[in-house]
């Protein structure tokens, strides 16, 4: 009896090990098929940086471009590196990040891989300070004092693209002309968006706005609008009753006519605002998640512009 029991336990553990081994083996083989010979290996931190780099790289087959997070991850505040991320970074030649404090795991990465070349796309850009222009003294976010959502402003985004091109040219001098050409081509497309914003600015300049996401501070700036109140709604943030009351009061007091919000996190509060006040809520995209198509930034930004045009035409 006892012998049988030990045999049984042994068989059980062996079976589980085998099943686990086969399962894992199949998974690894599936993954390995995607890996190829040695190329310039570039890893980007999250979506806007990835799309920018994708456009600069173009159809250059000597470069392998990978993104650390999933396309739907969104902003990287409080992102947690997984073991797989660390492995991905260990094989990278260049790590392109947004910078400005969004990737708060950077120190961890540079400690683990001191030789990894980390490049901040937003470097040299004029970033807004966190909480710029809103009448709210409580600190809402836990990353550094800069508001780094610069990619929303098409003018700054174009600069980021040029920065990324410069970084790529340094890492891969052989393809310098290709990168410069791609970047210029892409920036020309971005310029079209910028022109449309400039057109919109003629009607919007000077108007006050309330924003429900820090990122829209850049949008308001590009439109020449004044941000009177910023409520930073994002991942896992709950709004208290007092804050809601504050927002509503602010909107009525300043006679705000437009509120910029994000569909995903701002919908509930947006509905309340629409019911309780005269302000119009405009649901825009923060351009931080989407698919991996090269044009997806342009398309989504265009959609934002269309929405804005509609919102301002109504009045």
């Amino acid at each position: 009896m006892r012998k049988r029991k030990y045999l049984f336990v042994f068989c059980m553990l062996l079976a589980i090990t085998l099943a686990g081994g086969i399962f894992t083996g199949a998974y690894i083989r599936l993954e390995d098929r995607r890996e190829e010979g040695h190329k310039l290996h570039i890893v980007t931190s999250f979506y806007p940086v990835y799309i920018a780099a994708l456009n600069v790289v173009g159809d250059n087959t000597d470069v392998e471009l990978e993104n650390l997070s999933e396309p739907q991850t969104g902003c990287m505040h409080d992102y947690q590196l997984t073991p797989k991320d660390m492995i991905l970074l260990s094989g990278a030649d260049l790590f392109l990040v947004n910078g400005g404090g969004i990737e708060n795991f950077l120190t961890e990465v540079s400690e683990a891989y001191p030789s990894l070349n980390i490049y901040q796309a937003a470097q040299g850009l004029e970033l807004l300070a966190e909480g710029d222009g809103h009448g709210h003294d409580e600190k809402q976010h836990n990353h550094s004092e800069e508001n780094a959502h610069a990619w929303i402003d098409t003018r700054l985004y174009a600069k980021m693209v040029q920065n990324i091109a410069a970084a790529l040219m340094e890492a891969d001098p052989a393809n310098q002309t290709v990168y410069q050409k791609n970047a210029d081509h892409y920036c020309a497309k971005i310029q079209k968006l910028t022109d449309q914003f400039a057109e919109l600015k003629e009607t919007t300049a000077g108007q006050p706005a309330v924003i429900f996401h820090e990122a829209y501070a850049y949008l308001a700036k590009e439109l020449g609008m004044q941000t009177v109140y910023c409520l930073n709604l994002d991942e896992e943030r709950q709004v208290s009753a007092r804050e809601t009351a504050d927002v509503l009061e602010e909107i009525t007091e300043h006679q705000i006519s437009i509120v910029f919000a994000e569909e995903l996190y701002g919908k509930d509060l947006g509905n309340t605002v629409q019911e309780e006040t005269d302000a119009e809520v405009c649901y825009l995209d923060t351009l931080v998640r989407g698919d991996y198509k090269a044009d997806s930034y342009l398309n989504m930004a265009q959609k934002n512009i269309d929405l804005l045009k509609q919102a301002f035409k109504k009045k």
Partner: peptide, 19 residues
Amino acid sequence: LSKGGNFSKYSSILVGDIL
């Protein structure tokens, strides 16, 4: 921990972080 909407900073403790 959720004061100021910062709970996501600590959410790693719910599922654990081997790093």
